[in-house]
């Protein structure tokens, strides 16, 4: 018999329990019916068990989303935890689906489960990757759009972890602005 280190047997707990969601755009159904909970997890090993098992985001058909949110928060503006918040938005061009998208999404997931936002963890709700032929989008969702300093720190950390060049700015949009926008994009409340 082999002696196995306890480290190989004990799963590593996460600070938060996280839920992975999948959205597939079936126009014959209501939006909410297209949003499905895949599973929730609260250990590092269970995260990898899930991530290693599901399709890479770049291989999803256009119109699909993955979302990772704290357990109990639904990946929609209307959720009580999201309605006063917003998202840092990273817009990808068509080339980046093959070169950057999976890396960006994995890095974002690692930020979430690893608690990369330190004391600002309570401001974090989750993240979503939207696969769209007109341009893929990665969003990091926060709880309260009025918390300027916290929001800016979160944006800077995201940009740093994704290794987005300094000269490329990313914007933060409040969900309330996105929900009521007249044009195709909401205004940026903050930029880094």
């Amino acid at each position: 018999q082999q002696i196995v280190s306890p480290d190989m047997l004990i799963k590593h707990p996460l600070q938060n329990r996280w839920a992975m969601w999948f959205f597939k755009n079936d126009k014959s159904k209501e939006w909410t019916a297209n949003l499905k909970l895949i599973t929730a997890f609260d250990t590092v090993e269970d995260f990898w068990g899930l991530y290693n098992h599901i399709q890479k985001a770049s291989r999803l058909p256009s119109g699909c989303d993955y979302s990772l949110f704290k357990d109990g928060i639904q990946p929609m503006w209307e959720d009580a935890s999201n309605k006063n918040g917003g998202r840092w938005l990273v817009n990808l061009n068509k080339n980046q689906r093959q070169t950057e998208l999976d890396n960006f999404w994995l890095e974002t997931l690692l930020c979430l489960i690893g608690e990369a936002f330190d004391d600002l963890t309570d401001d974090i709700c989750g993240a979503t990757i939207n696969i769209r032929n007109k341009g893929d989008k990665l969003g990091l969702w926060t709880r309260d759009a009025r918390r300027g300093d916290a929001t800016l720190q979160i944006g800077k950390k995201l940009k740093e972890r994704l290794k987005i060049p300094q000269k490329i700015g990313i914007g933060f949009q409040a969900h309330s602005d996105t929900a009521t926008k007249a044009g195709s994009t909401a205004r940026d409340r903050y930029r880094v």
Binding site: V44, L110, D118
Partner: peptide, 18 residues
């Protein structure tokens, strides 16, 4: 209180955990 966080490198090491 205490908070559990993981460095990126550690999370990546766990990827192939049985």
């Amino acid at each position: 209180g205490t908070r559990i966080f993981y460095e990126r490198a550690f999370l990546m090491q766990c990827r192939e955990s049985p």
